[in-house]
Design a protein around this nucleic acid. Structure first.
Lengths: 343, 343
DNA sequence: TTGTATGCGTTATCAC
DNA sequence: GTGATAACGCATACAA
């Protein structure tokens, strides 16, 4: 009567109830061969009656696994707070983890810390079995770091250097090319881009695709660099509009800069798209609802997260050669913010 | 030479090196009394030389703690994908957790699941020592659930029913009142709001403050309900603008709806703020950069997260009576989207 | 099939 | 007052 609180049953309880040993219980619960069917049934019935559930903690200790994956986010709160990528990416990751009883550990790197510190913490605390490597930089030092830490990882897109980790790839370039071709077809000849910081692989991928497509069309590319924030988008836009011959169309490396740029253009008295065409990248929620609707490039961060989690789990499960995964490339979405240039 | 891989040192290693027992090592490392100072020094030196770090897993198992806190987020892509609150809130939470070696576990509730399932998973898997309770609903069933699960929690704002959990409070009402008064001072007499779903405590807090302030000013409140998404903001805006006597000012319960409403108004041929004043709530990044800049209400989700983590940790650490924490209330930020009504 | 050792830190008990 | 010893929590690998 006293013991009503009944702590969680352990395999020892199950074993006692089924009249077998702990080892047998473990075998039965994991469906391993070597036990008579009758014994298995008896054990499973006992476990069921007791409502036994495995203990993550004990399992973690005995198999040296965390049953969790980690995501390190470095961006400062301002940047973090309106990036449309991560929340959807995380939802995709969770869709995989929840089916396996895994957890997602978020590690936010604080101001003044290096991103590497975040991974180091996750590794030292043995908090996760593997990590997602996002926002790859050129010659990304995190790859060597993770090798050194012995932490499995999957890279979001392919790094430019050597990498022992599988990559999940969502090619930004077809979408970028499509934007540029769309603008060229509309008749624009002075087309600018506001690129992301050149340290990032995906930023330069988009920037290079922009330049190459424009050059292939026989046009002169014009490039300003932003920092993916709205404030940066505004500044880059002002610089472009202050040129002696300002562009008639601007492609931004993400929607946040594009929407800010749209605001800056309107604030400068320009009408979009009549005076200036604007295109973004991401197809974030607001892109559809600002006025005019933002022409942009749509990726699928949810599937990206899903694929990344599946790939990383193969590695965590000990697969030898985990292949890269290629996702459908980003696609152009045409809305009202792009039109033919003023005559 | 062979053993260069050198697995992590354990307290047994430290004990051997210091020439004492495991128990003594534990006492020394935890600063518990009962050891001679010389012995303590010897042990700490040995631990230091070996680079000993406690194993989370073993600690978790022996003290029955996860050293992690949990946040459950519903995977409504709309809510998740561009809500400016969570990322900043999370950064604030992490600023506290990182100093304590705790981790943040994110639990995303998948479509078709109830939010309660998320908490249940965290509790059953014993993944966390406590959880944050956000987006409180009226008579929120999660409170009883968490009591039943025995999971400590902190509520973001105060629930309307009984609650055994401490609350961290950021009062939305002063900001809401300030918006309404600002609009009234500008001379508006037909002021509408697009409220959030009435199931949420914070949504009705804002909605009620709106109605009360307007009524106190002798004006007739006009209310439409949105769902906090951009699409919902658009629809509510269209309904308002289609009225025989449309409002000259609209207050939205969040910036996403407001920015979408701004787009809808502009798409309908209205000039903001000349024909229609618009105000939001959140002061999200883009609020400053759309055109015209969005008059809105600024809260501080980073401090909110910080305070919530501190409060929750007191509870987790076993404090008996953890007091509520009151944060500075949300404040009005006036930008270009509000002006006097058309004459 | 069973019993036992293992992984690791904490804590209760006991001896000097 | 000091410190050692052993049990505990839990699942699993492996020898018996």
């Amino acid at each position: 009567m006293e013991d009503r609180v009944s702590k969680r049953p352990t395999i020892a309880d199950v074993a006692r109830r089924a009249g077998v040993s702990k080892g047998s219980v473990s075998f039965a619960l994991n469906g391993r061969p070597g036990l008579a069917q009758a014994t298995v049934d008896k054990i499973l019935a006992a476990a069921d009656e007791l409502g036994w559930r495995p203990s993550n903690r004990a399992r973690s200790l005995s198999v040296s696994k965390a049953f969790a994956l980690g995501l390190v986010i470095t961006r400062d709160p301002a940047v973090l707070s309106s990036d449309p990528f991560f929340p959807a990416f995380i939802a995709g990751v969770e869709s995989v983890l929840s089916t396996r009883g895994q957890a997602l550990v978020l590690q936010v790197v604080m101001a003044g810390e290096s991103e590497e510190d975040g991974y180091r913490r996750l590794a030292q605390d043995a908090r996760v079995d593997g990590v997602f490597l996002s926002d790859l930089r050129h010659d990304d030092p995190r790859i060597d770091l993770l090798v050194e830490l012995g932490l499995p990882a999957v890279t979001l897109n392919r790094p430019d250097g050597e990498s022992p980790f599988p990559a999940v790839i969502l090619d930004d370039r077809p979408g970028t090319r499509a934007v540029v071709e769309h603008l060229v077809e509309l008749g624009h000849t002075r087309i600018a881009q506001v690129a992301g910081p050149s340290a990032f692989v995906h930023a330069t991928a988009r920037a290079t695709a922009f330049v190459e497509t424009l050059t292939a069309a026989g046009l002169e590319p014009l490039t300003e660099t932003g920092d993916f924030t709205a404030a940066g988008g505004i500044e880059a836009t002002r610089r472009l509009l202050a040129l002696p011959e300002p562009p008639t169309a601007i492609f931004y490396a993400n929607d946040r800069m594009a929407i800010a740029g749209l605001g800056a253009a309107q604030a400068a008295g320009l009408t979009v798209p009549d005076d200036l065409s604007i295109a973004g990248f991401d197809d974030s929620e607001l892109a559809e609802y600002v006025h005019p609707g933002l022409t942009t490039v749509r990726a699928d961060p949810y599937r990206f997260g899903e694929a990344a989690a599946l790939t990383l789990n193969q590695l965590v499960d000990g697969a030898a050669d985990v292949p890269d995964t290629e996702l459908p490339p980003a696609q152009l979405v045409v809305r009202g913010s792009t039109a033919s240039p003023p005559v």
